[in-house]
């Protein structure tokens, strides 16, 4: 019986923008005014709510091996590894690479009380974070939010110009440095906007808004395929 249980669940999942993959590739512009759009699907995201400076916060930072960011806009860690984005005075979003391991507890067929498992997450780091928080009296949250948002990556010389069509924040590098992430609106949609490199931005809309944001960006990118009007 046990050998019939599915442990590889990754082939059943579908990213919110899988359908638009080819259109996003086709909309990307090369040349002097280059700008490219792609989805980075299935990044692991963990919502963390904990009071900074508390023992629980330190325990979570030790498990993540990344300190919690201190203020608005700050990101700690590495976008290609484990990074933590500031979301509020006691709220953080941990972003890390996709990794799916179905925990043994989830494949057991034994009856179980609801809430008996420490986490239903299939990401090992998320489960570790849950365990680290559970050892503390302090109230806090570690929630697997991987399905909440998807990630778009906009890159190229004209990426900032594309974003400036719909984001009222000052995105100039003297204000919005590499390694800054803020929660704001792009057009009418709430997104997390994260500058991961000089010309590379991550845009993280909620999954149900992702298609709209992708279309919005592709529309905003259209003009850069033509030569500049002096």
């Amino acid at each position: 019986m046990a050998d019939q249980l599915l442990t590889d669940i990754t082939r059943f999942r579908r990213s919110p923008l899988a359908r638009l993959h080819d259109r996003m590739t086709a909309a990307s512009v090369t040349g002097a005014r280059d700008v490219a759009l792609r989805e980075i699907p299935f990044l692991n995201m963990v919502g963390i709510r904990v009071r900074p400076g508390s023992a629980a916060a330190e325990a979570l930072a030790a498990v993540a091996e990344v300190p919690l960011p201190a203020a608005h806009g700050a990101v700690t860690g590495d976008p290609d590894g484990v990074a933590v984005v500031w979301q509020g005075p006691d709220e953080f979003l941990l972003v890390s690479q996709d990794e799916t391991v179905v925990p043994l507890e989830l494949t057991e067929t034994a009856d179980r009380e609801p809430g008996a498992l420490i986490s239903l997450s299939t990401h090992p780091l998320t489960t570790q974070l849950c365990r680290a928080l559970a050892g503390h009296q302090e109230s806090g949250q570690v929630v697997d939010l991987s399905a909440n948002r998807t990630t778009l990556e906009l890159s190229g010389h004209c990426a900032r110009a594309v974003l400036e069509k719909g984001c009222h924040l000052d995105l100039h590098p003297r204000v919005f440095e590499v390694g800054t992430a803020v929660s704001t609106t792009l057009g009418p949609v709430q997104v997390i906007l994260w500058r991961t490199a000089e010309r590379t931005w991550r845009i993280m809309p909620r999954a149900s808004f992702a298609e709209y944001v992708a279309h919005w960006l592709m529309d905003a990118m259209t003009e850069f395929a033509s030569s500049e009007v002096p």
Binding site: H72, Q87, G88, Q190
Partner: peptide, 13 residues
Amino acid sequence: LAERWAHTTGCRR
């Protein structure tokens, strides 16, 4: 007038 606001698309406070 003293009034309450929430930064819903930002820090949500």
